[in-house]
């Protein structure tokens, strides 16, 4: 997220083109910015930082039903929970690994498809034509619906016996006796549901990006004889890359941490093909009451996301500097 604004954030204000014009001394009273930040800092500490540290602490404890009530005095077990979660010879380690793989696939596919659909729709709706505003509004509706609503609609449609999907498939003579919420098809169902409610966000962001590309660049390219496809490839997509970089990162974090969609789609019976990591952790803490292990798994997830995000930011910022 920080990518695009990093140059501005650089404290070496002299490097900024307008840095010298910004005369700070007037506001130099040291406490002012801290006062302004105080409320945000307070709530972030209360809801995010301190509980996160609490979770980190819990991951070193043997925190099960025997110690829940007296959680302050739960025995310290060092890295035992981590060792257990990462023991890939045991059933639990294998499951974690599998759940991780499912999540990675889900995340990559959902983000990829959402980006492609969003870009396509943004390009299609770039030029004005009758009904454009209507379509634009329509495409955004799934994003505006509460998660619960969108997931329940899909759950209803994907029901094996009475669902719309199977009814349509059998009308078309394509079978229609399929399970969509069980077995391996569950992955597909999960992905489609997630894409349905996320791609409008990609559309919105990319549409915003398209609007800021000056039209004269295209005109110049057209004069040079570049076809439309070439223009899209050589102008549109590269010019959109700042938006895309942020968008992809945000979507990735949303999908990788997604809990609501699988939880609502499959109730408590999440099939292993759709067992996203958040669900897996939930089952390993709230269903089995082993909060130490659950916290260790969440911490591993957080570490992974931190590494990925940091890597992604370094990669993209280097590339944009080179460009």
């Amino acid at each position: 997220m920080t990518v695009t604004s990093t140059p501005r954030a650089a404290p070496t204000s002299g490097a900024e083109p307008n840095g010298s014009r910004r005369r700070r001394p007037r506001l130099s009273k040291r406490s002012v910015p801290y006062l302004l930040l105080a409320p945000a800092l307070f709530f972030e500490l209360l809801v995010h930082i301190v509980p996160m540290l609490g979770g980190l602490w819990m991951s070193f404890l043997r925190l099960n039903q025997f110690f829940l009530r007296e959680w302050m005095s739960a025995p310290f077990t060092g890295l035992a929970n981590y060792r257990f979660a990462l023991d890939f010879d045991g059933a639990a380690g294998v499951e974690l690994l599998q759940s991780f793989g499912v999540t990675a696939a889900f995340s990559v596919i959902t983000v990829g498809v959402s980006w492609v659909l969003g870009l396509a729709a943004a390009l299609f709706l770039q030029r004005s034509f009758p009904g454009r505003t209507l379509l634009r509004g329509l495409f955004l509706v799934p994003y505006a619906l509460p998660i619960y609503t969108s997931v329940m609609i899909w759950k209803f449609m994907l029901d094996r016996s009475d669902g719309m999907v199977n009814a349509t498939l059998s009308d078309l003579g394509l079978g229609g006796e399929r399970f969509w919420l069980l077995g391996n098809n569950a992955f597909l169902s999960l992905t489609i549901t997630a894409v349905w409610r996320l791609w409008p966000f990609a559309f919105l962001a990319l549409m915003a990006g398209l609007q800021s590309i000056p039209t004269d660049i295209y005109d110049a390219a057209a004069v040079d004889g570049a076809g439309l496809w070439q223009q899209i490839r050589t102008i549109t997509v590269p010019m959109l890359s700042p938006v895309s970089q942020v968008l992809i990162l945000v979507l990735f974090l949303w999908t990788f941490n997604d809990f609501n969609v699988p939880y609502l789609l499959f109730d408590q019976a999440v099939p292993s093909s759709a067992n996203l990591i958040s669900i897996h952790i939930y089952q390993n803490s709230f269903l089995t009451w082993n909060f130490g292990l659950g916290s260790a798994m969440s911490t591993l997830l957080l570490l992974f996301l931190l590494v990925i995000t940091a890597g992604y930011l370094m990669l993209t910022s280097r590339r944009s500097r080179n460009a």
Binding site: T77, F84, A85, A92, T288
Partner: peptide
């Protein structure tokens, strides 16, 4: 058998 393994290992619980 898999369920039994999970139950027996149980993450120190």
């Amino acid at each position: 058998d898999e369920a039994q393994q999970k139950m027996r290992s149980g993450g120190g619980s």
